[in-house]
Design a protein around this nucleic acid. Structure first.
Length: 480
RNA sequence: UCCCUGGUAGCUCAGCUGGUUAGAGCACAUGACUGUUAAUCAUGGGGUCACUGGUUCGAGCCCAGUCCGGGGAGCCA
């Protein structure tokens, strides 16, 4: 046998104990103190271990445990409790632990920044190393986990293969924004070519490399072999975006499907989003209930016109139950004529503004999938329609978060794709391998990109992506 | 990057028309209380008013610049 440490007592989590009815059983539990209250005779310690949003109450009889020992049981301290599981005499909980042994594993003095009161999210961002210990972040991080798992489950159950797209890439061909440079060259004196430009042949990869802005092109390659694939990995954009919806480092899910046309693509996107919402409602009910109440409470502090028209649970159920509205870009333009006044007048050929997207979602009261955009405002790889003006793009627009998904059927015709690349002045040479998939055994295929943080934003009802990722990376911010 | 807005105690905020020693609630410390639910009650300590410069007899308050936060827009997921 391995010399592992044999526990004389079973290790429990708060989640297990709160469900237990084994009154009289001796248990031990470790976790972090949320509050302590009481009087000369008895103290109550609310203990949380992250397994669930709820705390377990440890009752400490001061006749058995000295006040000296209790002194360091303060908000934020890490402690171990041993005692008897009992039915609670108090109102707020069904079970509690009658403490027989108490050990402070790690004290937290009065400088511990988290208090037993609500903090602003802005303040918590400054202490990102401690904010997971709050109810709100605990809930969010658990939901993040469950959603990650659900995404893999969704695809796995449907015969998709998980593809690990590279994080370091040598292409910026897609043009999806500014990229982060990856180099081992000496920044102070990089090697130069005779003409003064930097000699990337001497760099680590022998060429200029960047962090990926999308795994799509690689996904497409895999789809032409494995059929159904998806990527789920970090994505990097060096855009100077300062909004509650953008991060420099974020996670993206990009399925790519051989033999899927645009309607199949829409069906997959819609069923996936419904599945994920349903999964969250079923597996994260306590955390979602907490966040739902949190949003309601926060709404009360706002002015009338700033309050949200629906609750988190209402929005989640709406997405789960109602079919999404599907319209073409051209139809959307007609619908927008019903709008009173926009800051930017909708005009065929121009991209939809945020206010236009919001209007569409408000108007139909469900998520809206807009398809067949003018080709000039979309990427080179999208399948061109017969009208010569539009491409088979699709954007899934959501309330609160805006563009949840962006995708398209891909142009599988070699000549058309090549012509489009030339038209848009994209460096054809660097895409030789991408073009070859259209040269050898090309097939109709489709795919889309889902921003994981935007999904989490919607599921949690939070309003800023900086608050739903553990350590946000944004312009001028890479602390922690 | 552009527009709007803000930075006062550990946290959340008030601070009048520029005027004496800078205010509250919470947190924290001490004490009281026989089972509490963000416990309650009493007492107490706690400030580089973001930073730099300017105007003024006098600046938390007015002006300029810088830094940082928030909201909106663009880019997008």
């Amino acid at each position: 046998m391995y010399p592992f440490n044999i526990q004389t007592m079973e290790k429990y989590k708060v989640a297990d104990l709160l469900k237990s009815t084994e009154y009289g059983k001796e248990v031990s539990i470790k976790g972090w103190v949320r509050t302590k209250r009481g009087n000369k005779n008895v103290a109550f310690v609310a203990l949380n271990d992250g397994s669930v949003i709820h705390n377990i109450q440890a009752v400490v009889d001061l006749a058995k445990i000295s006040e000296d020992e209790l002194k360091h049981v303060t908000t934020g301290a890490c402690i171990a409790i041993t005692g008897t599981l009992t039915k609670s005499q108090g109102q707020g909980q069904s079970v509690e632990i009658q403490t027989t042994k108490l050990e402070v594993l790690g004290a937290a003095d009065e400088t511990f920044p988290l208090q037993k009161k609500a903090h602003t999210l802005e303040f918590l961002r400054e202490i990102a190393h401690l904010r997971p210990r709050t109810n709100t972040f605990g809930a969010i991080l658990r939901i993040r986990h469950h959603m990650s798992f659900a995404i893999h489950k969704f695809f796995n159950d449907r015969g998709f293969y998980y593809l690990h797209a590279p994080i370091v890439t040598g292409t910026d061909a897609e043009g999806a924004g500014e990229m982060f440079r990856v180099t081992t060259l000496d920044m102070d004196k990089p090697p130069r070519n005779p003409d003064g430009s930097i000699d990337y042949k001497q760099d680590f990869f022998g060429r200029q490399t960047n962090l990926t802005v999308s795994g799509q092109l690689e996904s497409e390659l895999a789809a032409t072999a494995l059929g159904l694939v998806y990527t789920f990995g970090p994505t990097f954009r060096a855009e100077n975006s300062n909004t509650p919806r953008h991060l420099a480092e974020f996670w993206m899910i990009e399925p790519e499907m051989a033999f899927y046309e645009i309607n199949d693509n829409m069906d997959l996107a819609e069923s996936m989003l419904k599945y994920l919402v349903q999964y969250a409602l079923e597996n994260c009910s306590d955390d979602i209930a907490f966040l739902n109440n949190r949003a309601i409470e926060e709404d009360k502090t706002k002015k009338e016109h700033e309050r949200s028209k629906s609750t988190l649970l209402e929005r989640l159920n709406n997405v789960k139950n109602e079919p999404f509205k599907r319209i073409t870009y051209t139809e959307a333009m007609e619908v927008l004529k019903l709008g009173k006044k926009f800051e930017f007048r909708p005009e065929w050929g121009k991209d939809l503004q945020k206010e236009h997207e919001n209007f569409l979602v408000d108007h139909f009261k469900v998520p809206v999938i807009v398809t067949d955009y003018p080709k000039d405002i979309k990427a080179f790889y999208m399948k061109q329609n017969e009208d010569g003006k539009t491409v088979r793009a699709m954007d899934v627009l959501f309330p609160y978060v805006g563009e949840m998904i962006g995708g398209s059927q891909r142009e599988e015709n070699y000549d058309k794709l090549q012509a489009r690349i030339k038209e848009m002045n994209i460096h054809e040479q660097s895409l030789w391998w991408y073009l070859e998939t259209r040269k050898y055994g090309t097939c109709p295929h489709s795919g889309f990109g889902l921003g994981f943080e935007r999904l989490i934003l919607f599921i949690t009802g939070m309003t800023n992506v900086r608050d739903i990722i553990p350590f946000p990376r944004t312009p001028k911010n890479a602390e922690f």
